[in-house]
């Protein structure tokens, strides 16, 4: 049996957890390749036109995997904490969306569901999934805890590496405020990261952050924002902004949460230079280069003037 893991959406936040879990249980899996033209086209073909670019990309990865595995892995989540600690409704609906779009193909979907309001914790969700995979409770528990440890270690390493970058003063440091599935995606975020590096800047990732600390910091920014992932980013802005030279907000068109949150950041945040970039399938990153280049030029100029003062 082989599990197909779409390299999109939650993959970027949870892939260490998932891959270690499956490895420990001895389950085969295949991850779809980096987003490419074929995947984008598949995604566009199978999505409702108005869906956000990131979800179209997810759809493309699912479509790519269909004849290459026995089960497609589509976890869903709703409430990640008490009260209104939630995620974009896309992540609540994704399992059923895939199921309906591919009804004729009779897809086998492997999933787990997290919903704290229904007491479905991550642990419980993984136990259920493990049972579905035919493993006993002890095996699943062991795999889950090893996977959690691996996840924790990976995060810690990434945060520590970034800390070193934040201490550097030889180059401009640009904070990238974007969901992991956007900033690490070959089509959406990578071109921006590469271009910044070409311009001799150090990219700093808002999504590489101690999540608990970030969520706590976010309280200074908002009382009613319901989306955990956005709150983590807003908290990261608070934690990192002193150590960077500029901030780029990146979202995929027409992301529901980002449509409001990024506007709010532009309105409320005062300090470092900041721009807001929105990507859609037609334009991609073309045209963005000029904006990024002039943004970096302005920062350089300001810095120079500042030194002269």
């Amino acid at each position: 049996m082989t599990i197909g893991i779409p390299r999109a959406f939650l993959y970027y936040k949870y892939h260490i957890l998932w891959e270690t879990f499956f490895d420990e249980l001895g389950i085969n899996y295949v991850v779809s390749p980096e987003t490419n033209k074929d995947i984008i086209e598949r995604g566009l073909r199978h999505s409702i036109d108005e869906s956000c670019l990131s979800s179209k990309i997810f759809m493309g990865h699912v479509d790519y995997l269909i004849d290459k595995c026995d089960y497609i892995f589509v976890p869903r989540m709703q409430y990640l904490g008490n009260d209104k600690e939630t995620v974009c409704t896309k992540f609540q609906a994704i399992y059923d969306v895939i199921n309906n779009i591919y009804r004729e193909q009779n897809l086998n979907i492997l999933y787990y569901s997290i919903d704290i309001h229904n007491k479905d914790t991550e642990l419980k969700a993984f136990l259920k999934m493990g049972k579905f995979l035919g493993k006993n409770k002890a095996q699943v528990l062991r795999a889950y805890y090893i996977a959690k440890q691996a996840e924790k270690t990976d995060k810690m390493l990434a945060i520590n590496n970034q800390k070193l970058l934040l201490e550097r003063n030889d180059k401009l440091k640009i904070l990238l405020m974007a969901h992991p599935y956007n900033i690490y995606d070959e089509f959406i975020g990578k071109p921006i990261v590469n271009y910044l590096e070409e311009l001799d800047c150090i990219p700093i990732y808002g999504c590489v952050v101690d999540e608990k600390k970030a969520l706590d910091k976010a309280k200074e920014f908002t009382k009613t924002m319901p989306w955990t992932f956005n709150k983590e980013l807003v908290g990261a802005l608070n934690l990192y902004h002193n150590d960077v030279d500029g901030i780029i907000l990146i979202s995929s068109f027409p992301c529901g949460p980002d449509s409001l949150v990024n506007d709010m950041i532009i309105r409320k945040y005062q300090g470092k230079p900041i721009i807001n970039l929105t990507l859609d399938a037609e334009e991609g990153t073309a045209g963005l280069e000029t904006r990024i280049e002039s943004f970096v030029d302005i920062i350089k100029l300001r810095k120079k003037n500042h030194v002269h003062e």
Binding site: I48, E50, S51, C52, C88, T89, K90, Q92, A93, I94, D96, V97, N100, I101, R103, P254, G256, S259
Partner: peptide, 28 residues
């Protein structure tokens, strides 16, 4: 336009429309 939860009902509504042979029209 862009209402995510309702966009995500559309593939489902499409199935209902097929199963019950009832026409459906979408306005955004």
């Amino acid at each position: 336009f862009g209402c995510t939860p309702e966009i995500d009902t559309m593939p489902v509504l499409q199935r209902i429309s097929e199963d019950y042979k009832i026409p459906i029209i979408y306005f955004s």
